[in-house]
């Protein structure tokens, strides 16, 4: 702000004042529901997860094998043309330990979050998922991990059919 201006517009309101009757507010909670089509590529991806397998797509132009799969290569901008099974093992590319839940509430036990580069996909091609069955202090970038699946009868065709990824035994 210009050095000549001393007073700025704006009236701060504290959380306490907000709850008092001094501030008039109107509340509304939307009652909206959505049903998203998974689409062609994610549809097959989810079908395969239900079977305990990770599938990617190959672009015949740049030769990348990409996970999560898509029906087009966003770099070459051509249709991808082949389904390729990948392994359910991978490498921790990066990780974080979340003491916040999805609504930013504090939680005591951290959620172990990682990007996992998938074995059988192109280098640097990873997915967002969770780690488990590991001491948070022992997680590191480069750690080899393996998917821990839900029992087949409990799988529903969702990314959560993998419960988490755990360290592989040497």
């Amino acid at each position: 702000m210009s050095k000549d201006m001393k007073e700025l517009p704006g009236t701060p309101v504290s959380g306490k004042e907000l709850k008092s009757d001094k501030i008039i507010t109107f509340e509304w909670r939307p009652n909206a529901k959505y049903a998203w089509s998974a689409g062609i590529a994610y549809g097959r991806y989810l079908d395969e997860l239900k079977e305990g397998r990770i599938i990617g797509r190959r672009c015949s132009r740049c030769k990348r094998i990409i996970v999560p799969p898509r029906m087009f290569c966003e770099q070459c901008f051509v249709a991808t043309d082949e389904w390729v099974y990948c392994k359910d093992t991978g490498t921790v590319n990066t990780f974080s330990l979340s003491y916040l839940d999805a609504d930013a509430n504090r939680i005591k036990e951290p959620i172990l979050v990682a990007v996992i580069d998938i074995d059988g996909a192109s280098p640097g091609v990873g997915i967002l998922h969770l780690l488990g069955n590991v001491d948070p202090k022992k997680i590191d970038v480069g750690m080899k991990v393996k998917a821990v699946w839900k029992p087949p009868e409990e799988r529903e065709g969702a990314v959560t059919d993998i419960l988490y990824w755990e360290p592989m035994e040497d």
């Binding site: 998203w36 994610y42 989810l46 916040l100 930013a104 959620i111 969702a158």
Partner: peptide
């Protein structure tokens, strides 16, 4: 909604 939301992510995660 298909590949990320079921994991209940928080934006600070990423």
């Amino acid at each position: 909604p298909i590949i990320s939301r079921p994991l209940n992510p928080n934006l600070v995660w990423i």
